[in-house]
Design a protein around this nucleic acid. Sequence first.
DNA 1: CACCAGGCAAGTA
DNA 2: TACTTGCATGGT
Length: 223
Amino acid sequence: MTNRLENLLKDLYEKLWQAFGPQGWWPGDTAFEMAVGAILTQNTNWANVARVLADLKEAGLLDPRPLREMPLAELARLLKPAGYYNIKAQRLRNFLDFLADQAQDSMEALAREDLEGLRPALLKVRGIGPETADSILLYALDKPTFVVDAYTHRILSRHNLAPEHCSYEELRRLFMDRLPPEVSLYQEYHALLVRLGKEFCRPRPRCQVCPLEGWPEGWTYPG
DNA sequence: CACCAGGCAAGTA
DNA sequence: TACTTGCATGGT
């Protein structure tokens, strides 16, 4: 007999798909744009990030070399609408240096490396934590790693599928140990969780009933 | 006005 | 290991 949690995770995915359909994530035309977006969206509304990405694209600066070579203060000025602009300028610069050293500024070259080696290497970059690393790996580089974010944790704990307090790695393994390692499945599952979270699983005052058929029970406020 | 948004690192105990 | 704090803009 298969695991109960495994069946629930697969059922949740089916219901999300029925309710919302394909999400087409990550937003972005190129692998590099997705990686930059992953860094800029740290604790930040996507609309603010989109503004910066559009400005960079307009200026022809959405490219590894010019971004890496420009003065840090100028980069920070460009990132202003995305918030945390000083710290994000340094973090983006750190990633750009990594991309230069590791793959000669080429996301395509980076994508030729194995997940098992790439993930630890990305995590060593100052400013790239587990969620940012997994977002880059899954969406920009098409590697089968599951992305965990605040919505993932909130949704699973409200349905009593995961402890209120658990680590990033614990949640990541919860999915990866029970689902086949398919890139398109992981991409769509995470995007659907964010879609559900944005509309129905906000922090307490604006929390709503889960709209998925058969899933409202167990959906409770935390604490 | 307060609160939130697709985190992360550094400091403290 | 487990808290706490700083980082900052724009929308609701």
